[in-house]
Design a protein around this nucleic acid. Structure first.
Lengths: 102, 102
DNA sequence: ATTAATTTGACTATTTTTGTCAAAACAAAT
DNA sequence: ATTTGTTTTGACAAAAATAGTCAAATTAAT
């Protein structure tokens, strides 16, 4: 249950890199990278992909982590989380079929 | 699997109301109500609650429908929808515990 | 064909998000 | 304990997304 921030922070530390280096390599302000790591700001999908490439992480897994963070943050205060997500899944899969099949 | 828009449109029609009436009762521009019904614009939570009250619908159910629409729209193009939602559920439930328990 | 109802789109205002920067806080090392 | 390196914070401005208003266009009904 790691957040996107946890993942990129752990990865950076395991590689012994400092924020400034990562920031310049990815062309993102280091203050922003710091905020990403602590979940204070939300990265764009493009930025998530940059991190995946830079740290050599599975892009799909990282995006899954990032997307699920956002969804979780948008509904954690609701009291019928499971129901909401169950319905959301049905709808998403339905939308997917008409999207693909269209 | 009804969307929020489907619900409020069906409800309006079953009660034989015209957009203008609903719009004025809820103090929302009729163009916006029309767009809500067709899913072209996203309502705020306050607006969803207004609709629930006006049409005498279960507030939680309507919010569930509205929230799930949004989540579905945000991920339907992903190819691992189920995984994303599974992780999101774990995270949301976790966040809920620290939120409540805090 | 007239009237009524809905939908569309352009426009503005407001809010939210984004990036940038410098200073503050913190940590490590000498 | 002061210097040096790193991370975090917050203020600010620019840019983008969202929201509401309105009138005209379209569609439907009588």
């Amino acid at each position: 249950m790691e957040t996107f921030g946890d993942i990129i922070k752990t990865e950076r530390e395991s590689k012994g890199l400092i924020l400034r280096k990562v920031a310049s390599a990815l062309d993102i302000d280091q203050a922003i990278v710091s905020k990403f790591e602590r979940g204070e700001r939300k990265a764009s999908k493009e930025q998530v992909e940059k991190f995946a490439e830079f740290y050599n992480l599975d892009k799909h897994k990282l995006i899954t982590s990032w997307l699920s963070d956002q969804i979780a943050n948008s509904i954690f205060y609701e009291d019928n989380i499971k129901e909401v997500l169950k319905v959301a899944e049905e709808k998403a899969i339905y939308l997917k079929t008409i999207h693909d099949g269209k």
